[in-house]
Nucleic acid binder design. Structure first.
Lengths: 313, 313
DNA sequence: TCAAAAGTGTTATCCTTACACCCATGT
DNA sequence: ACATGGGTGTAAGGATAACACTTTTGA
């Protein structure tokens, strides 16, 4: 085999999610001299780090003074050309391969000066259907239709963006972002091709540095899917919580409104939570009972996630 | 950041699956001077290859004269110490990071001399419950119980290996392999630690080079899970097939026996297949109708996978 | 005619969905 | 008393699982 001349650098990117005031937020970092936000990111040191996960925890802690609890690998991004990051390492440019990770934190603590928690809705406004069809989709739909000059393009746009009565599938965050990218409707598209930025774009969300918005989309897709078959929401909850808080957390991630009773009934059947008898100091209505996640079940049997009983408008 | 002295090499590994005579088989390669089987594997050339996927297709074709159809990324393995492969590249040893891919082929064609298709059951005999509880589990259970000296170990073993009446969960292939590894019950465990091999081991399957059996376990886990929510089986089927062939393919992958009628009824509801009117030249009984996968649906709406209506013994 | 595999019918049960209603607190 | 959010009951419809049975071929 040949061609081992170009150096390769492994980078690690982290999408750390948390719930703050009922909103789902992501940990971001603003680098000096950079006007776009990015994800916590750091090189993987093959000498110092025994595993990716240890390396990731270390540099997230370093950059943000914060330790994610639950961590899982997402995807390894290696495409050239497409906003591929390039590292400058003395001996010339190196190709950067970035391994994306998803982290879940039980609380959005204050971090360092350069880092901060941002609602993901800032980067994907059209992904939030909690209050019905997002307004952003109006303009996006128009733009997509004028891009969709072939039957195939139109079919994909319809399917992914719930046009013409197609149902919304909240899991397909990444595919939607990639379609917008392909259609030139996100800032990253023109930037990566070195083209001049279009003056106006539909409200497709705030761009990020490098391929970080793609990594964030991958994380949201994965998390939305995983919600349904693993009890991952609880990694985002404090020890004690009310059922409404839990429901709002699920809604904040999935970006869809849920049916209260059916959500509770489904939850009850799983036996995943247990009432504590204690009550919450109500925020205005009747006080709610506090519950806890029966974490011990994880060791005792295979355990599923939450069903998402939609609330239709 | 520091410590960029050690070189990093990106390797690509492929788990290519196909169905042959109703059995699920994997593409393997035997390297010269090596007595264990391995997966098709090759270095990623950062100069020559634009994307991982293109690189993967190229070297699988080269090593096996064979092109996988459907391809998806699995996981990136980077742990040190644990049977981590090491590349010798002139300037000394380099750390190898391997990106695993899953490929599905519609037929198991003959490949080159060095490569061949092997049933996965060879590597994971205890994962095949199609004819009831596999015999291998008897000895494995005994070995696990004597290893499980703590409550936690026992709970995990029970849960994963369906001991004491726990239900079998076919998706947890990787976790089971990792538990066996931790318990020292697979050959790779002692090998990676540089220890002397135990003389006898329970029938936990044939070892592979490097961490390839772990990659294979990851692939099986992923495929078994994906079966249920995406119509991936059809990537393994020829253009026309009978419902029994389809059912046998699903069973061969999932490793569990399915209930015939319920399998068909569930399939019918999905509208995923369409009768062709033509009949199969029967293999001994009444001729079966041939069906085809309505691939056009993929573009038309989000489409789910197969339900696995178990047939209890 | 008999074995082998294909294919059909039917019922009980459980889960999901959708509806409407009552309860406990703060202001 | 009333607004606000917490919490419950129940019935219709659909999916699943479990049962046993008929049909069409080759040997």
């Amino acid at each position: 085999m040949s061609g081992m001349g170009t150096a390769v650098v492994i980078g690690l990117s982290a999408v750390v999610m948390a719930i703050r005031d009922g909103e789902a937020v992501v940990l971001t970092v603003r680098r000096p001299g950079e006007d776009l936000l990015g994800l916590p990111f750091g090189p993987f040191d093959p000498e110092g780090h025994r595993t990716f996960e240890l390396a990731l925890r270390a540099f997230v802690r370093e950059q943000t003074r914060f330790d994610p609890g639950y961590v899982e690998q997402l995807y390894t991004f290696g495409d050239k050309g497409r906003d591929a990051p390039v590292a400058d390492m003395g001996a010339g440019a190196a190709r950067v391969i970035s391994v994306g990770y998803l982290g879940l934190a039980p609380a959005a603590l204050a971090g360092s000066a350069a880092s901060g928690w941002q609602p993901w809705t800032r980067f994907f406004p059209y992904e939030d259907w909690r209050d019905g069809r997002p307004a952003a989709l109006g303009t996006i739909e128009t733009a997509l239709r004028s891009w969709a000059t072939t039957a195939d393009r139109l079919a994909r746009a319809r399917l992914l963006f719930a046009l013409d009565g197609a149902p919304w599938n909240e899991e397909r965050v990444l595919e939607r972002y990639e379609l917008l990218y392909e259609a030139g409707l996100v800032r990253e598209a023109a930037r990566d091709r070195g083209e001049v930025q279009p003056v106006v774009l539909p409200p497709t969300g705030e761009p990020m540095i490098s391929d970080h918005r793609r990594i964030l989309a991958t994380a949201l897709s994965r998390l939305r899917g995983k919600l349904k078959y693993r009890p991952v929401v609880f990694e985002l909850m404090p020890e004690a919580f009310t059922l409404s808080t839990l429901q709002r957390a699920v809604e904040a991630i999935a970006g869809v409104p849920l049916h209260k009773q059916n959500f509770r009934r489904a939850l009850e059947r799983t036996d995943l939570v247990e009432g504590l008898g204690r009550m919450d100091a109500g925020t205005g209505g009747r006080p709610a009972e506090l519950f806890r996640f029966r974490r011990e079940l994880l060791a005792a049997r295979p355990v599923g996630g939450m069903s998402l009983p939609l609330l239709r408008e």
